[in-house]
Nucleic acid binder design. Structure first.
Lengths: 217, 217
DNA sequence: CCGGCGCCGATTGCCAACAATCCTGTCGAC
DNA sequence: GTCGACAGGATTGTTGGCAATCGGCGCCGG
């Protein structure tokens, strides 16, 4: 991330991958990315290297880079790691949260409830990320937060599929309410347990076979 | 790690940092490393990038790379993350260990006991790493194991200081014995608890003020 | 005598060209 | 008709050199 060119290329790539443009398995041809981002090939190459280090992309020698395909098994394993780390973060957040942080956290939970009641799944998915961000900030543990962020970045696609399952938001909201309650009550044990329970339910949902929605589109 | 040159440079750098040659804060001048490793500057540069991605080295734009200085607070935070992940690994190991793995694990513990009784701290420190490696293998969770490995690599220096404290090996051995007992008994709950307890005691030891050795330098 | 300013060596960051490697399509032999 | 070898094209990996930037040193003014 030294130069501006590399950073811009990295952002562009990350956005394209997250947005679903460039699906898993898609080849990243360096010349194409040069034309796409407008930066030099060196910068593109370094950006790819950075994304490889984060686990978003993989490179086969002399065969180029491709968007990494994370299998369901890997997604489960990654989420298990996240489970352990979110537990740590929730515990720290409960220990270290300040009154000034408690108020917006509670407010955020109300907004999330409204989003679920309103059926706005996309917004709810965003709000979840924000909630985790607030908890991570309160935990004051940049290392664990950074690890969780990098783990999570690897499975935007899985997370997206998950949020569309019927009934899932209700379950998720109940678990997150318990988490916020415990954190704002400054109860580290309960906070850790709530966070672990929440992520565990994600693991279970991921492990289940994908539900047929009958949607022909 | 694509090319052999880069890999060799990376190994050399990693070894030099681990060995204590190149202490934290030491500047990594690219031309020097070219002369030292005998590979091209590009390879050195890529090797440095790889080490930056692992958190061992940091780079300031236009000012070069230096061996990263991890403060005690950071070491504690890193070890807290390790605590969470080792708990997960111990749990998985207890669930998944095979009879063929139980025997050498128990044997390794005896070797460790002998090393402590013999006062061979350096060897004991090595054996600890190997023991963790065996547990990680048994857990069959490459993602968590990889994360722990990269976290641990950042604080070889702290770990080294820790192992020299009087009385520490005895405590450590007792905790690890409990861990091995739980894992070989296939008791996930106890295994996780033992692993967490072990790493927590490391956290506590790190947090304590460094013992005065009477050396005024 | 001291503080600010501008040059200079050293070092890094960047780029364009070269060399090595791999996939694809085609040709020929069996 | 099918399999194997071969050449062509495309893509990546590497090298060397050049421009940009930074810290230190000496010089000048106060």
């Amino acid at each position: 991330m030294a130069s501006a060119a590399q950073e811009s290329a990295e952002r562009a790539l990350r956005a394209a991958i997250s947005r679903g443009d460039m699906p898993p398995g898609h080849r990243l041809v360096e010349a194409e990315l040069v034309a796409l981002t407008g930066v030099s090939r060196s910068a593109v190459r370094l950006a790819i290297d950075a994304l490889i280090a984060e686990g978003l992309v993989e490179r086969i020698p002399h065969r180029g880079a491709r968007v990494r395909i994370v299998s369901t098994a890997e997604a489960v394993a990654i989420t298990e790691c996240r489970m352990a780390l979110e537990g740590l973060l929730a515990r720290k957040a409960a220990e270290r949260i300040t009154p000034a942080e408690i108020v917006p956290l509670r407010g955020h939970l109300r907004v999330m409830t409204d989003a679920v009641d309103g059926g706005d799944l996309l917004k709810y998915s965003d709000l979840i990320q924000q909630l985790h961000g607030m908890v991570h900030d309160a935990a004051r543990h940049p290392i664990a937060a950074g690890l969780v962020g990098r783990l999570q970045a690897q499975l935007v696609r899985h997370q997206f599929q998950l949020s569309l399952r019927p009934g899932r938001p209700r379950v998720s909201l109940a678990e997150l309410t318990a988490l916020v309650d415990a954190v704002t009550a400054r109860d580290p044990e309960r906070a850790e347990a709530a966070a672990v329970a929440h992520v565990r339910s994600i693991v279970d949902a991921l492990s289940e076979p994908v539900q047929q929605t009958g949607d022909p589109a």
